Simulated assay, not measured.
Amino acid sequence: MHNKLYAKIQEEFNQIADTFIEKEIDVLADENLITIQSKYNLYDIQPYFAELTNNVLAKDVKLTIESEEDFDPETDDLYEYKINFENSKAYLKREHYGGGIFYSTLYEYTEEHHKSFSVYQNKENIKVTNLSYLYFKNGIPDQFIECTEYGISLKTYTCENGIIKSYKLEWPEYDHYCIGELTFDNHENLKMITETASDGRIRVVFDATVSTEDIEEALAELETFLVENIADQIIEKVKIEEPVYCILFEYSMQAPFPPTIAFGITSEIDGNFQDKELFELYSSPDMKYFSENEEPNPINIDFYPLAIQPNYLITTSYGENIPSQEEEAFMMWEKHVFDTYLRVCKRLMHFDFSKSFTKTENFLVMARDFEKCNEGDFYQNMLHYRTKK
């Protein structure tokens, strides 16, 4: 049954661009719909969509734009909604980027399911990004199916007394799956969402207690974790027979923590070390010992102890909440992340890893933002630190 449904949804996804404009025009012409504007993403059909993306709004936030004082075009996002106030449902959501560029989502409703389909629009093109169905059983969410250009996922809910308590997230083309657990307080307010993957790894997806106001404390705790906990794991778990010339952390400013980790070995260097460009020496995906690799050379470093995971949510949310127009604020955030990783690298230089591998004379602990390719900045700092030390 599911295979036929998946095929139908995939076919519909492939055809959305052909009819989207026509359906959008119908919604825009509906006189029963009222237009509201907001700085925030207020609506989607997936249950707990804000918590799942760790973008829950504070209770005292003003949701709608009603005057010039409510909106700063230089720093704020702009969402436009078409709402039917009689049934409290949205039928169109537009996220504006200026110059006739926006993401648009249309919504349709039946007793059996809610549907949303989204596109990226500019003056010349329409690109389909998402098609989702939320199916109900006895008026309660039962299954959520999402189709994107990367494939289809299925989320099946388990409910008690009308409240979602857990879900199973799976991908039809893969054996991998996740079990989500939702925890509530005595007033039925959601406190936490955790996901346990089929390989046993546990991820904290949402934690109501975290706050980006604690960003400096979060960075300090992450630094301690990446130094002390990861060093202990390297000593305990990593065994490399060949000489190692670097430990390399890679990260992205989209979600700067946790990083990946790799170990550079001398046999991977063709020719003289001194003749190589930095990108040839410090690029995790090219390394034999890389935490993202599977067999035969796994690096079983666990970056996800439950106690540290709320700090990942704090740092990711902090970066996401910096308006794209505030370049100076984002550059300062980049520097905070850079400085944290630099301190981690310096502190790890002092550890004795002889139980795990032999260091070469060129050994460095390094980091890099793999999108910015700032290995040169880390290299100069670490080379100076090693020489000075």
Rank of each mutant, 00 (worst) to 15 (best):
residue 139 G to H: 03
residue 148 T to F: 09
residue 138 N to S: 07
residue 71 F to N: 09
residue 165 K to T: 08
residue 275 D to P: 01
residue 132 S to N: 08
residue 4 K to E: 10
residue 30 D to Y: 04
residue 69 E to P: 02
residue 108 E to H: 07
residue 71 F to P: 13
residue 383 L to G: 02
residue 106 L to E: 09
residue 26 D to F: 02
residue 4 K to Q: 11
residue 103 Y to T: 14
residue 203 R to G: 00
residue 310 P to S: 01
residue 72 D to C: 07
residue 36 I to R: 15
residue 203 R to V: 04
residue 241 E to K: 15
residue 51 E to V: 03
residue 202 I to K: 15
residue 194 T to R: 11
residue 186 N to T: 06
residue 162 G to K: 05
residue 54 N to Y: 04
residue 266 T to V: 12
residue 182 L to W: 05
residue 89 K to A: 00
residue 22 E to Q: 08
residue 263 F to N: 10
residue 337 V to D: 00
residue 91 Y to T: 02
residue 293 N to S: 11
residue 1 M to P: 12
residue 110 T to R: 13
residue 14 N to W: 02
residue 71 F to K: 09
residue 359 K to V: 03
residue 253 M to P: 05
residue 80 E to L: 10
residue 100 G to D: 04
residue 333 W to R: 11
residue 120 Y to I: 04
residue 195 E to P: 02
residue 321 N to T: 14
residue 2 H to R: 14
residue 387 T to F: 03
residue 170 E to A: 12
residue 165 K to F: 02
residue 308 I to N: 06
residue 347 R to P: 03
residue 286 D to C: 09
residue 169 L to V: 06
residue 227 V to N: 07
residue 183 T to L: 12
residue 270 D to S: 14
residue 142 D to E: 11
residue 153 S to Y: 02
residue 131 L to K: 13
residue 74 E to F: 12
residue 215 I to K: 15
residue 275 D to H: 01
residue 20 F to C: 00
residue 29 A to R: 11
residue 113 H to G: 01
residue 339 D to V: 05
residue 213 E to Q: 14
residue 198 S to H: 02
residue 32 N to R: 14
residue 336 H to C: 08
residue 230 I to Y: 13
residue 280 E to D: 14
residue 150 Y to C: 04
residue 164 I to T: 05
residue 283 S to C: 12
residue 243 P to Y: 02
residue 324 S to V: 07
residue 42 L to V: 10
residue 2 H to D: 13
residue 150 Y to I: 03
residue 285 P to I: 05
residue 149 E to L: 04
residue 87 N to K: 07
residue 216 E to P: 06
residue 377 D to W: 07
residue 46 Q to F: 04
residue 97 Y to S: 12
residue 277 E to V: 00
residue 78 L to C: 08
residue 326 E to Q: 13
residue 82 K to D: 05
residue 202 I to Y: 08
residue 281 L to P: 10
residue 354 S to K: 15
residue 171 W to T: 11
residue 242 E to Q: 13
residue 135 Y to T: 00
residue 232 D to K: 15
residue 165 K to S: 01
residue 164 I to H: 04
residue 298 P to I: 09
residue 181 E to P: 00
residue 316 T to V: 01
residue 377 D to A: 11
residue 368 R to W: 00
residue 227 V to E: 07
residue 41 N to R: 14
residue 377 D to I: 08
residue 168 K to A: 06
residue 106 L to T: 09
residue 381 N to S: 14
residue 236 E to D: 15
residue 144 F to V: 04
residue 331 M to Q: 15
residue 30 D to P: 07
residue 170 E to F: 05
residue 369 D to F: 06
residue 203 R to T: 10
residue 77 D to L: 14
residue 90 A to F: 15
residue 215 I to Q: 14
residue 207 D to Q: 02
residue 41 N to A: 12
residue 334 E to T: 03
residue 94 R to S: 14
residue 101 I to A: 05
residue 81 Y to D: 09
residue 230 I to Q: 12
residue 268 E to S: 15
residue 120 Y to P: 00
residue 254 Q to W: 08
residue 58 A to C: 09
residue 161 N to Q: 08
residue 147 C to V: 12
residue 125 N to E: 04
residue 55 N to H: 11
residue 146 E to F: 02
residue 227 V to I: 15
residue 178 C to H: 08
residue 112 E to D: 07
residue 84 N to C: 07
residue 139 G to F: 01
residue 125 N to C: 02
residue 51 E to R: 06
residue 255 A to P: 00
residue 194 T to Y: 01
residue 273 F to P: 13
residue 210 V to K: 11
residue 133 Y to D: 00
residue 264 G to K: 03
residue 362 N to L: 00
residue 128 V to D: 03
residue 303 F to L: 06
